[in-house]
Design a protein around this nucleic acid. Sequence first.
DNA 1: TTGAAAGCGCTAACAT
DNA 2: ATGTTAGCGCTTTCAA
Lengths: 338, 338
Amino acid sequence: MKKRITLKHIANQFDVSIATVSKALSDSYEISAKTKEKIQQYAKEHHYKPNSVALSLLNKKTKTIGVIIPNIMNNFFAKVFVGIEEKATEKGYSLISCISNESYEKEVKTMELLKNGTLDGFILSLAEETQEKEQYQHLMNTINEGVPMVLFDRVTDEIACDKVIVDDFEGARNATIHLIKTGCKRIALVSVIDNLSVGKLRAKGYEKALVENNIEIDQKLIVKIGKREDFETAMKIVLSDKSIDGLLCLEESSAVQSLEIVKRMGYLIPDEMSIICFTNGKLPQYVTPRITTISQHGKYIGEMAASILIDRLEGGSDKPFQTKVVKTSLIERESTRK
Amino acid sequence: MKKRITLKHIANQFDVSIATVSKALSDSYEISAKTKEKIQQYAKEHHYKPNSVALSLLNKKTKTIGVIIPNIMNNFFAKVFVGIEEKATEKGYSLISCISNESYEKEVKTMELLKNGTLDGFILSLAEETQEKEQYQHLMNTINEGVPMVLFDRVTDEIACDKVIVDDFEGARNATIHLIKTGCKRIALVSVIDNLSVGKLRAKGYEKALVENNIEIDQKLIVKIGKREDFETAMKIVLSDKSIDGLLCLEESSAVQSLEIVKRMGYLIPDEMSIICFTNGKLPQYVTPRITTISQHGKYIGEMAASILIDRLEGGSDKPFQTKVVKTSLIERESTRK
DNA sequence: TTGAAAGCGCTAACAT
DNA sequence: ATGTTAGCGCTTTCAA
């Protein structure tokens, strides 16, 4: 077990000053070729690596980004994370990552904890609980302390910062229009995420599509199911209305569960019942029939968020804040008609 | 935008030395009550936070763990990550996380990069490519440089360090025995991960179970499918042997795909064909019929890995290396008989 | 061409 | 009770 080597060790080795070693290793013109060569050689042989903690202290930059994700088991967030990681690595940044676990308290604690000099900026998506409480003081503080921040997906208007969001409104609108065009007359909206900003936006997109097509909005068709309610029971009540022939599910698990229920009730899919859902993961592709989905391009969102933050970190601190809206795309599968 | 405040600022504010401020804030007995109070009050009002970079430099400890995960889209690894994150947070550690993306090169680069003083130890699972190449020099180096490391799931005997692994052998053996006990006569093994250590172990467990039950091992029933091969084609060839009545799939996606194929071929499940798979995620629970799985307790594995590393970091550096084997459990669902 | 000194923010041993 | 000094590892003026 060899300890890590420092400039000091090298300096002692050759009876020169630390400054000389530092300069030699950065190939400074001030140092003679001979000295440079022997020092560089020695450094390489002994696997010298500058201590980045010392450099961080000196430069007041850590080249580290804090990432706070509500739930990494959610495929969408995992994809975003992949995007962030790829872009950050490319640009020479490391990631300190935390999972807020949808908890307001964990989110606040994590932010406070990490604002101790270990990172240059944040990328985060708000915890469900934070969006419910609508408490954003910790974000305000972060901004006020001059720590750059990029919010993605679950954002809030209350905070002025860079944002990357999905075009949830358009995505839902397009999906609803698709259902209408393929012959659905009575489309129900299934939301288990009405407490989230994105859930509300998607619901608005659905309503817009109906209005545009002169279909009356029927509140009985707008199904909001809470965490504590039993999904299956709730859905069965909804589906007792036999006129329903289309389902727009706002995320994938409710879609997969609905599909099961609908199948068991004997509906033919897509002819008697069409289904579309917003998606994160693989589930909709593996069930039978495969579900038509609204893809959110998670990885791209992650890349964008990282790019925007790094741009700001590296000089663009006076640029106005931007909100990047990433379009969704409809991926047609077997749960909708042609 | 208020800049972050330092001991120096506070010292200037009250015309005392930096040392006094430092001591006052740590509530030292050396400092008078009056001085302590005014300094502490001022610090609180101005949200003073010690600069952890400076502390890291001083203490030569960063309270940060490097985590390298082959693929965060894999539900098993995501769960492990959750476990690591939870335990690390609890113990006051941060996580610097990277995705090796199953690439040997990325894994090596990441390790080299992170061994620059920013972290106290590593938790990682080997990239697929690393296991194929069997090149572990970067791990050797890390160990030799005295950086503690915990390997999980995808490990190697070549490296002496702490490990947390799944009992893949027993898991596969038990699953195979379950198939035999519920009446399967000809059980095929389906592996798309024979390049991984865990894949090989699982295959051995399968063989052991057959031998124990006096069933001849038939190489035609051991199906190894590579990344480049077309899974469906390969499976159809295998299933042309109509005597096969059980499938042990070594991970979930091949199980879900096999299920589809088998269903389309008109088999009754589980009566004419039983299926069990090792699992990571939700897929097997959502398909019809739901697939019996071998659960790997990912979160627990993550917690163990973090605990073991932190123990070693905090004093236990002379303890012998341990390999913790986490048992799997069989979760019976509808794809196997009672 | 090389070195000395200061400083990044902090703590701790050692004066005063 | 408070201050001085040194040092963690490094870079960067400025001096020699």
